[in-house]
């Protein structure tokens, strides 16, 4: 990310149209989120849908979420206990330990059923259905 930003700072890069830079910036940010997000970048740059999942009382709400492909899903931990978002089949990257109020976002580009759980409280399970 840093290296790319430095590249743009060179004089010839300044001639680039601002909207091109903006679009590239969006792509960069999206691709930082997770491997799944990289494939989603084209769709995401067109229309970024975001859906929230709340983590409260050791449960995901909603536990099952159905979204169109390209949706960015954001988990936010409202518990005092940390939680770790983990894909049941390693279909997307795990979050770090989410402390209170921390969020984690994954953009789902491909249709499918994505089961996930909290790796340290495994009875906490959820499903994202991407259509």
């Amino acid at each position: 990310m840093k290296a790319i930003a430095r590249g743009f700072a060179r004089p010839h890069a300044l001639r680039w149209h601002p909207t091109v830079l903006l679009a590239l910036g969006v792509l960069c940010c999206v691709s930082m989120a997770s491997p799944a997000a990289m494939a989603a970048s084209a769709a995401a740059s067109k229309a970024m849908h975001t859906q929230q999942i709340e983590i409260r009382n050791f449960a995901f709400a909603p536990a099952t979420l159905t979204v169109p492909a390209g949706t960015r899903v954001v988990w936010t931990n409202q518990d005092e206990e940390p939680h770790v978002i983990t894909s049941a089949g390693s279909q997307f990257a795990s979050s770090k330990g989410l402390d209170t109020s921390d969020s984690y976002a994954v953009t789902f580009s491909k249709p499918g059923t994505y089961a996930y759980y909290c790796s340290i409280h495994p009875m906490m399970v959820g499903t994202i259905i991407v259509q």
Binding site: A88, A115, Y116, S119, I120, P122, M123, V125
Partner: peptide, 10 residues
């Protein structure tokens, strides 16, 4: 008993 925990398990 806190490693390799399975989804839905203890």
């Amino acid at each position: 008993n806190v490693l390799d925990l399975k989804a839905g398990g203890l």
